[in-house]
Amino acid sequence: MEQAGHKIGEEMVGAVLVVGGGIAGMQASLDLADSGYKVYLVERDSAIGGHMAKLDKTFPTNDCAMCTISPRLVDVGRHINIELLTDSQVETITGEPGAFSAMLRTKARYIDLERCNGCGECAEVCPVSVSDAFNEGFSQRRAAFKLYPQATPDGYAIDKRGVAPCRDACATGQRAQGYISLIAAGRFDEAYRTIKEDNPFPAVCGRICNARCEDACTRG
């Protein structure tokens, strides 16, 4: 990602990296995007909004906090020049002001935002409850969650912790759920590569496997 620094004619060249999707980051992104720059907005949480999304009122005007940021949430989510990079953090930045590259680390969301319609059915059936960090730990939420009702992107994520029971039971640490899903999708080459990442001798192990993953499976 390179920071924009000049024009060619009337066309903006390069892009801008904005770190943090709070009220300041959203407004900066909108101002830059409206000026014609391509903006990459990086946010470490699963949705933008920052601390202001947690507030009820703002000082000193006592205005509704959500009423203040909601229009910006919508505008950022819809702006053609803004690309949201949620669940991401900046690892390294190389180069110099005006011409730099950034490397990001993005945490898996485990839910496809392109297909999620925000219905919340996954959270309703999720059997795992965890402390709700958005509410400072004063409440519980499901491991399948949306950060807050008005969250942008309007999609759910899964807070995955630990190791899947099937993988934990396997003597080789094989990601059974991963390669089985790939096989079901007809992606056989990728399934084979997934197996080989953990186990260099899949044919041998397959002959002596006693299916511990099946015994430990909690999916039914």
Rank of each mutant, 00 (worst) to 15 (best):
T86M: 09
A151P: 03
A211Q: 15
P127E: 11
I111Y: 10
A53K: 02
A65P: 14
K160P: 07
K7E: 11
Q3G: 12
A102M: 09
R207S: 14
T94S: 09
M103H: 11
V163D: 09
V163W: 07
G5S: 14
G220L: 10
R72N: 15
G120D: 07
C122H: 06
D189Q: 15
R167A: 13
Q140L: 05
F201Q: 11
I208T: 14
T58I: 05
S35Y: 13
I158H: 00
G22C: 04
G162W: 01
V125R: 01
E136H: 11
F201S: 11
T92D: 00
F134R: 04
Q3S: 12
Q140S: 10
P71M: 13
I23N: 01
E190S: 13
M66V: 14
L104Y: 11
L104E: 13
V125A: 05
P97G: 07
K146L: 04
S88I: 04
I158P: 03
A15H: 01
G162T: 04
A99E: 04
G120T: 08
D75G: 02
E83K: 06
L17W: 06
V42A: 06
E83D: 00
Q177V: 07
S46E: 01
V18H: 02
R142Y: 00
L84N: 00
D31G: 06
G118A: 06
E11F: 07
V90S: 04
A184T: 12
R219P: 09
V16N: 00
G120I: 03
D75P: 08
I48C: 03
C116E: 07
I183Q: 08
G21N: 00
E10G: 08
P202Q: 12
K107S: 08
F59G: 14
Y40Q: 08
D132P: 13
A144R: 01
A33E: 02
Y110I: 05
A144H: 03
Q89P: 10
K196P: 14
P202Y: 09
K146V: 00
V130Y: 00
R105H: 11
V128W: 02
F138W: 10
V13Y: 05
A169N: 11
D87Y: 05
I23C: 05
I48N: 04
P202N: 12
I195D: 02
R187Q: 09
I208K: 13
R72V: 10
A102K: 05
M26H: 07
P97Y: 08
A133P: 15
C64W: 14
V163N: 10
A216W: 06
K146M: 10
C205L: 09
E43M: 03
Y192L: 15
C217Q: 08
D63I: 00
C213L: 12
A102I: 12
A28Y: 06
T68C: 05
